[in-house]
C-alpha cells in the first residue's frame, strides 16, 4: 500500500468511528432524557460509579494537592512569591486538576468496568436477550450509566477539590510554616465561584465521556473473551485521551472571555 492510500484509509476509518460514536451518543442521550427510566439500574450505577470511586479520587486528590503545594512553593520562591502558594494551589485544583484527575481515575475504574460488563453481556447474548424481552438496551444499560456518571463526577470533583486543597493545607501548615487560619482565609477570599463552577461543568462533560466510551466499546465488542479485553483497553485509552482533548477545548472556551 502506498503512503497516500494508507493515510486515506486510516482517515476514513477514523471518520467512520467518529460517526458511529456520534450515533451511539445520540441514542444514549435520547434514552437518557426521555421516559421510561430504569430507576433501580440508575441507583445501582450511582453507587458503582460515584460512591465506590470516592476512595481513589480522595487519595489522588490529597497527594496531588500536597505535591502541588510543594512545587508551587519552590517555584514561587524563585521570585519571592511563596506567599501566593495557597491561591495558586486552589486555582489549579478547582479549575484543572480536580476535574481532570477525578475523570482519569474514573476512566481507569469506570470506563473499564462498563466496557467489560456490557462487552461480556454482548458476548453471552444477554444484549440480544434484552431485545427479545422488549427492553431497549440503551434505556436499560447505557442511559443509567451515562446519567450516573454525569451526575456523580461533579460531586466527586467537589470532593477532590476540597481534599486537594486540604492536601496543600497540610503540607503548608505542617512543613512550610504557613498559618492555618490565614491559609484558609487566603484561599477562600481568592477563589471565585466561577473557578469552582467551571471545574464542575468540565466534570459533567468528562463524566459523559467516561461512561460513553465504556458503553460504546462494550456494546460493540465482538470476538469472545479477547474482544472484551480489547474493548476494555480501547475504552480506557479513548476515555483518557478524549478527557484531555475536552479539557483543553473547555478551558480555552472558559478563559476566552
Amino acid at each position: 500500500m502506498n503512503p497516500v492510500q494508507a493515510v486515506g484509509r486510516s482517515t476514513l476509518g477514523l471518520l467512520r468511528t467518529a460517526g458511529s460514536v456520534a450515533i451511539f451518543a445520540g441514542r444514549g442521550v435520547a434514552a437518557s432524557v426521555s421516559a421510561p427510566w430504569f430507576g433501580g439500574q440508575m441507583a445501582r450505577q450511582v453507587v458503582a460509579i460515584g460512591y465506590l470511586s470516592l476512595p481513589v479520587v480522595g487519595l489522588t486528590a490529597v497527594f496531588t494537592g500536597a505535591a502541588l503545594a510543594l512545587n508551587i512553593y519552590t517555584g514561587g520562591g524563585r521570585f519571592n512569591a511563596e506567599q501566593i502558594m495557597p491561591q495558586i494551589v486552589a486555582l489549579g485544583i478547582t479549575r484543572e486538576l480536580g476535574p481532570v484527575l477525578a475523570a482519569l481515575m474514573l476512566a481507569g475504574r469506570v470506563s473499564a468496568a462498563i466496557a467489560a460488563e456490557i462487552g461480556a453481556m454482548r458476548a453471552t447474548e444477554q444484549i440480544d436477550a434484552l431485545h427479545t424481552l422488549s427492553t431497549d438496551p440503551f434505556r436499560y444499560l447505557v442511559a443509567p450509566r451515562l446519567i450516573a456518571a454525569v451526575l456523580t463526577l461533579p460531586l466527586l470533583t467537589a470532593v477532590a477539590d476540597t481534599i486537594g486543597v486540604a492536601g496543600g493545607f497540610l503540607v503548608a501548615t505542617q512543613t512550610l510554616g504557613f498559618s492555618g487560619p490565614l491559609y484558609v482565609q487566603n484561599t477562600w477570599n481568592f477563589l471565585t465561584s466561577w473557578d469552582i463552577q467551571s471545574g464542575l461543568i468540565k466534570a459533567a462533560v468528562f463524566g459523559f465521556i467516561v461512561a460513553l466510551m465504556g458503553a460504546y466499546h462494550g456494546y460493540n465488542a465482538s470476538g469472545g473473551a479477547r474482544g472484551v479485553g480489547r474493548a476494555t483497553t480501547h475504552a480506557v485509552v479513548s476515555a483518557a485521551i478524549l478527557v484531555f482533548a475536552a479539557d483543553y477545548i473547555l478551558t480555552s472556551l472558559f478563559t476566552a472571555k
Partner: peptide
Amino acid sequence: NARFGMLFQGAALFDSLTIWENVAFRLINA
C-alpha cells in the same frame, strides 16, 4: 416483540439478577 420468546444457546440469563428476576424480566420491565 411481546409475541416472541427466545431461548438462547447459552441461556443468556442476566448474571446480575436472580433466577426469578430473570424469568420475570419482561413482566417487570416491559
